[in-house]
């Protein structure tokens, strides 16, 4: 007897291809296709049939080598890229009954502004580098429907304080900040509308260890205190082990294995996962 749980985010058979495909690769007949690239027409099959559920308060880790489709998946979830086909349901939108990929741009924007937050690997994508830091946060708040300048300023200051950005620098532009600080401004921005879903794409890559530590502590704390659901993409297995409850392993656009994080790390089934885990220092 298991209790029926409604996932916060549910993705079914998400496909994303770059290029039109041709008769040799349409059905992924092997031979002309190496990995997920078709030699005939140059089509890249970035995500192939990705399916997963994300539950309330859960951290879902996604690991995989470069080019395995992790970032494409994250972009698709945040509507930065249009998917080729597939379904996505979000609990806060129409009771999770409507496929968001089929909805209008306004509806997508609503979900993105009210129900999601995203932190990009590259801060340039997530922040307006020549706006003030607090302005960046206000931008997200305005798109979520806020109009009161005073309350937005309070909220922004509160968030920047939470991510340890000194208050006297909140009016400064992120381009003057170090990489770690930019990343934390991004996190503050992503959290500003209290999203139930947070998408984190390689948030700690390229940060030095102590800054990485403080970013991880921050994420863990936020997850514990606000009980938000997080999709966490990383190729750092240490980060995944620390934060993720469950983990998906991606290779060549497909999810090849999924399970409890300790199970993936201690008893990997697929040969690629075994190789990955054994590469861990």
């Amino acid at each position: 007897m298991s209790v029926l749980e409604v996932p916060v985010l549910s993705v079914k058979q998400l496909n994303k291809q770059y290029g039109n495909g041709c008769s040799t690769c349409n059905y992924m007949k092997l031979g002309k296709v190496t990995k997920n690239y078709c030699h005939e027409c140059g089509t890249v099959y970035a995500c192939r049939g990705v399916t997963f559920d994300l539950h309330h308060g859960e951290v879902l880790g996604i690991v995989g080598e470069s080019g395995s489709g992790k970032s494409t998946l994250m972009k698709s979830l945040y509507f930065d890229e249009e998917v080729t086909d597939g379904d996505m349901y979000v609990a806060g939108f129409e009771d999770g009954k409507k496929n968001l990929f089929m909805e209008s741009a306004q509806k997508k924007r609503f979900v993105r502004n009210h129900l999601m937050g995203k932190v990009y690997q590259n801060p340039i994508l997530g922040l307006k580098m020549n706006f003030s830091s607090i302005g960046n946060i206000a931008e997200k708040l305005i798109s979520a429907g806020n109009r009161h300048v005073g309350s937005m300023e309070t909220r922004g200051a509160e968030l920047l304080e939470a991510v340890n950005i000194p208050i006297h620098r909140m009016k400064e532009e992120p381009r003057n900040f170090s990489g770690g600080m930019q990343q934390r401004v991004q996190i503050a921005k992503a959290l500003s509308n209290n999203p139930p879903i947070l998408l984190l794409d390689e948030v700690t890559t390229g940060l030095d260890l102590s800054v990485q530590a403080s970013v991880l502590d921050l994420i863990k704390g936020l997850q514990r205190d606000l009980n938000i659901s997080i999709v966490l993409v990383s190729h750092d297995l240490g980060v995944i082990r620390m934060l993720a409850d469950r983990t998906l392993v991606m290779l060549e656009g497909k999810v090849i294995e999924q399970g409890l994080t300790d199970q993936i790390l201690e008893d990997p089934q697929h040969s690629y996962t075994q190789q990955l885990v054994h590469s861990l220092l």
């Binding site: 399970g259 409890l260 300790d262 199970q263 201690e266 008893d267 089934q269």
Partner: peptide, 9 residues
Amino acid sequence: LKSIYGTYQ
């Protein structure tokens, strides 16, 4: 033990 705890499939 690990099989019981779900660490091993």
